[in-house]
Design a protein around this nucleic acid. Structure first.
Lengths: 346, 346
DNA sequence: CTGAAAGCGCTTACAG
DNA sequence: CTGAAAGCGCTTACAG
């Protein structure tokens, strides 16, 4: 008599279902995996038996042969933030459509933690993984490559990336934001962006913004460029300080979180937006459309990126091409709302 | 010669590590699971071998004996929303501390989808699951109970719940919000709450709010109570309509998302908050503190709930008490900010 | 402290 | 279309 700790809590297995249906376990397995290979009457019997017993498949056991676990990972900088929540939701629900499950982890913008996270996901046998942007620990990337796990970099786009990617041209997003301000006639512009260390998206946006400003003949002094974390309160405090000391007519924010803080800062200082100060963001997060005034911003199609990423990873599994030269650029949308206008004469 | 589809992509297994270290596979297994049972020099050899080969454990294979998979599930109404993001983040990071992984799914406030989701999580052999609130499909609950999978209901608290729970007293949250308004002297109050169907948290809040208002001698007519989804834009439109037609001095919002919309509505109508209209929310989400004026609200300790839920589920695994009479109430905090004041004389 | 062997729940060639 | 048997990668009594 086997003396196992406890066999699976008494839950019925494929063997019990087979016995009840009067078939072999192999046939029950086929019923779930390749139903077409089972004759209809047999199918009916198995279905009944499975339902009667309340049978639930053990995909972990199945995965031992299957090469695939049905689980796909995603690592984001943070979950607790409007930035990626739309992406995560669409990625997850799209995976569900493909009968896959999402394993998610956040590194809190500390790239070093990525190695441990990747390892832990790999231990769970993920079939693929989505990573945000291009800045990653080579050790983590190596572990993935060694095991031939499909990887896609999402959010940012580059024609020359090492990883397959699905995302928007963040450089262009920065350009577009500044271009709009230039067209309106702004010359005194503040740049507030997320820390660009280990964050290629922020870096690309900032480079695009500064580049465009210089093209437009604006001289961008170092003290017009500020770093701010993804925090409304911090952004608000920062912008209050900036507006108190530097006379600016416009603020380009590296993302909408910062824009929200900037809007509140102006309200706190009783500076009218857009009359006294124009504010433009990047992202178009929840709420940006409904603030007063509405936030002018460059929209990134987060939902689309999430869905495409899910589709792509699943396809890579199914076709067996792990890391092809796959790249997909999604469009950026300039959304004009009320937070920007031509500068007033002084 | 075995003709398998393809054996694990050439990734080294326990057998390869054992060979390289000159020990048996059993010892390698012990090295990872119960290192104390392995002599130090042996340990060193195995560690070297594992590193040299880039070995990564296959927890799925391990789980087949282990009774536990190391994976814990959580089902939320939505990921794409400030409401639960703080909770999710803290739940996930706390699980990481316990060396567990989070499997998450969203049902989009459609409770019927919960059955399919629970089944899919069960197929992945979750060791436990956190569900939001008390309203759940009995079939789903049954599947969980049959397999003895620990369940905890989070977010809401009740002394008489069927499920173990960790959460706040949402009834009281509703009371507290209205109590504050009564103390300020408001009598013309609008109630805007999420749909209470299948949502015990919203129901409890609304009941608490209405009850307290009646206690305070306010007559609450049916048309003072409005339903609104978790959407800033919808809340804004609704509040604009309300304020145009009904003369109110205060608005109680069932959650901060609605409050944000209400604040923007007032700004759009050029009604000063709190002078013309007081607004109070429940939740204290990101951004609530930094709006202008800051939002008065009843804070739910989302981080704490998430961490406690993770700890509790892990503990239930370790002690083997699956569904005890476990209940834990977390405190509610009244946060007074600028969005509420005594009503002006008319 | 360590190894040989049986087994976890399922899948898949192979043979009918 | 179906069954018997071997095996997925690891763990765990059992025996030393």
């Amino acid at each position: 008599m086997p003396k196992h700790v406890r066999s699976r809590k008494g839950a019925p297995g494929i063997v019990e279902v087979a016995a009840r249906a009067g078939v072999s376990p192999a046939t029950v397995s086929r019923f779930f995996n390749t139903p077409d290979m089972v004759k209809l009457p047999t199918r009916t019997r198995i279905e009944r038996a499975a339902n009667d017993l309340g049978y639930i498949r053990d995909r972990m056991a199945g995965s031992m042969h299957n090469r695939f676990s049905g689980t796909i990972g995603i690592i984001v900088p943070t979950i607790d933030n409007a930035i990626f929540s739309e992406l995560i939701e669409s990625f997850a629900s799209r995976l569900l459509v493909h009968d896959r499950t999402m394993l998610i982890a956040a590194h809190g913008y500390e790239l070093e933690r990525e190695v441990a996270i990747v390892r832990s996901l790999l231990e769970r046998r993920i079939d693929g993984i989505a990573l945000i942007g291009f800045d990653h620990d080579p050790i983590a990337l190596n572990m993935l490559a060694q095991r031939n796990v499909p990887v896609v970099s999402i959010w940012n786009f580059s024609e020359t990336s090492d990883l397959p990617c699905i995302g928007a041209n963040n450089f262009k997003a920065g350009q577009m934001a500044v271009e709009h301000l230039l067209e309106l006639g702004h010359t005194k512009i503040s740049f507030i962006f997320a820390d660009t260390k280990g964050n290629d998206r922020a870096r690309a946006r900032l480079d695009g913004a500064i580049g465009k400003a210089k093209e437009g003949g604006i001289q961008v002094s170092a003290d017009a460029i500020h770093t701010c974390s993804y925090d409304v309160g911090e952004a608000k405090r920062l912008v209050v300080n900036i507006l108190k000391s530097e006379p600016k007519t416009a603020i380009v924010c590296g993302n909408d979180i910062i824009s929200h803080g900037a809007m509140f800062a102006c309200q706190a200082l009783h500076l009218k937006v857009p009359d006294a100060v124009s504010i433009i963001g990047i992202g178009d997060f929840q709420g940006s459309a409904h603030m007063e005034p509405g936030l002018t911003t460059i929209r990134l199609p987060a939902k689309k990126i999430g869905a495409l990423a899910a589709d792509t990873l699943v396809e890579m599994n199914e076709t067996g091409r792990p890391n092809p030269e796959f790249r997909r650029e999604v469009e950026l949308n300039f959304i004009r709302r009320g937070s920007t206008a031509a500068p007033c004469d002084e």
